[in-house]
Design a binder for these strands. Structure first.
Length: 482
RNA sequence: UCCUGAGUAGCUCAGCCGGUUAGAGCAUCUGACUGUUAAUCAGAGGGUCGCUGGUUCGAGCCCAGCCUCAGGAGCCA
């Protein structure tokens, strides 16, 4: 009966007066008598009661904040108030000492900035324990959602040869001695001699390869890391982030939006069900944080309310053109409160405009469709020009309160001539993407897909304000410490 | 990359008009207490004031450059 039991199971145990063994890390040691022990299975600690009068004082001294210990003892109904059960220790073994004078963490609230600098230890806090358990659930739910619908999980490459999509600055992948790369006559680096015989980089998106899969398997999704070497210093960007990119044959934009909305609701509801304690904890945390803010900046909904609200309401769908009309007539635009006033049709929306639509006007997630062709990617399906000759594409962005763009997707241009024409206009090298164009040459069909930024989803569900706090080891400009 | 703000003890922060030995709370250590759960009480230790240079009789404080962090913007997911 010395097999270790996880604390979560123990706290839910119906049985008492049995001998149990727990292993975990000390979160508190009060009055030389009460150990609060945590093993990461839940934020709740099990209380260990130590008979300190009959315990070696040298052992007692080693029960410090952060130390790893094993305890064998009897699980009994608690004699105190704060918990249902507790363990009276019969045997305590120190598995790993933790010198409190050197240990960076302290048994008190510590700032997220400080914990970010100690990302190797921050898992040991309640906040990050909750975040990463929720992240785990969301990740599992994404797979469950697609698997239940017959999608094939397709592993697209991490190393790619082209940045043809133009989704952003890439990180180069090379085997060259950087101090002395081989060069050709005109002084340029000779990538023919590099590992792959050509210039390569880390992927910025698996979409193009995903489309290849969808053109045979019908419905595929990718879920993997992507890399952008943009010098972005914001609470919503990372240099390395995880993206979910489904791609579906025979889907049009409506089908695409339906799937995205369904997916988001599915995974949020999964987390609410399976991580109720963690989300409740994060909800409390956020509520406390909100209290520190001035009245005006406070959110009118708690985290739990926001999540539930998102499940209970259809996302608001409207076209870019309709959005522009709303924004043009909006109070902040008329009162010149926007930093970028709405001039007319054709320019991209600024965050302040998106935020107005989502947070003020509709007060729920919004799906914007049919953006101007000029501001969107080459592979998006072109609409017929409207009565006024304005050209749009079948794009859709899902905007979330507090997060901004959560999903970006489109129906793809399946017509070869239209696609090639657009690539020429935008200066995209067709010869590099010959394999992509082949899908339009051989058995082309209408299809659609989208990209969902996984960390932004985790941000929304955990209520965390900075994206660097929802990925275990964030990569951002000037930081790759851990 | 741009704008704004910040960097002082292990952590969170105060530090007036430039002036003697740089403070507080928490944490840590020592002792007391012992059914606590943000334990309590008493005491102690702990500082290259981000870095470099400048102004000054004198700089934590003023000036310049740099570094890092936070928030906002752009780019986007």
């Amino acid at each position: 009966m010395s097999q270790r039991i996880k604390i979560k199971a123990l706290l839910e145990s119906e049985q008492t007066n049995i001998e149990v063994t727990v292993k975990g890390w000390v979160r508190a040691f009060r009055q030389n008598r009460f150990i609060a022990l945590n093993d990461g299975s839940t934020n709740n600690n099990i209380q260990i009661v130590v008979d300190f009068e009959n315990t070696d004082p040298n052992l007692l001294k080693r029960i410090t904040f952060g130390a790893a210990i094993r305890v064998t003892g009897e699980l009994i109904p608690s004699l105190g108030q704060g918990q249902k059960v507790e363990i009276t220790a019969k045997e305590i073994e120190i598995l790993g000492d933790c010198n409190p004078e050197e240990y960076p963490l302290q048994p008190k609230k510590q700032s997220l900035e400080f914990l970010r600098e100690n990302a190797h230890l921050r898992f040991r806090t309640n906040t990050f324990g909750s975040i990463f358990r929720v992240r785990n659930s969301l990740s599992f739910a994404v797979h469950t959602f697609f698997q239940e619908r017959g999608f094939v999980y397709l592993h697209t490459p991490i190393i790619t040869a082209s940045d043809a999509e133009g989704a952003g600055e890439t990180f180069h992948v090379t085997n060259f001695d950087l101090a002395n790369p081989p060069k050709i006559d005109n002084g340029e680096i000779d990538f023919k001699q590099d590992f792959f015989g050509r210039a390569t980089n880390l992927t910025v998106s698996g979409q193009l390869e995903g489309e290849l899969g969808a053109m045979a398997l019908s419905d595929i999704y990718t879920f993997g890391p992507t890399f952008r070497a943009e010098n972005s210093n914001t609470t919503r960007h990372l240099a390395e982030f995880w993206m979910i990119e489904p791609e579906m044959a025979f889907y049009d934009l409506e089908d695409n939006m339906d799937l995205a909305e369904e997916l988001l609701k599915y995974v949020i509801s999964y987390a609410l069900k399976n991580n109720a304690e963690d989300i409740e904890f994060l909800n409390q945390r956020l509520t406390e944080e909100e209290k520190q803010k001035p009245q005006q900046e406070r959110s009118d909904m708690s985290l739990l309310e926001k999540l539930q609200f998102c499940l209970d309401n259809d996302f608001q769908r409207l076209t870019y053109t309709e959005a522009i009309d709303i924004l043009k007539e909006s109070t902040p635009n008329k009162k010149k409160k926007f930093q970028y006033p709405i001039e007319g049709w054709g320019t991209d929306l600024q965050s302040e405009h998106e935020r107005y639509l989502v947070e003020k006007h509709f007060k729920k997630p919004v799906i914007l469709t049919d953006y101007p062709k000029a501001i969107k990617a080459f592979y998006m399906r072109q609409n017929e020009p409207d009565a006024q000759g304005r050209e749009t594409v079948r794009a859709m962005d899902i905007l979330f309160p507090g997060i901004g763009e959560m999903v970006g997707g489109s129906q793809r241009e399946e017509r070869l001539e239209k696609l090639e024409q657009r690539m020429d206009e935008m200066g995209i090298p067709k010869e590099e993407l010959w394999w992509y164009l082949d899908t339009r040459r051989f058995g082309a069909c209408p299809h659609a897909g989208f990209g969902l930024g996984f960390e932004r989803l985790v941000q929304f569900v955990t209520g965390m304000g900075n994206i660097r706090d929802v990925i275990p080891f964030p990569r951002f400009p000037k930081n790759a410490e851990f």
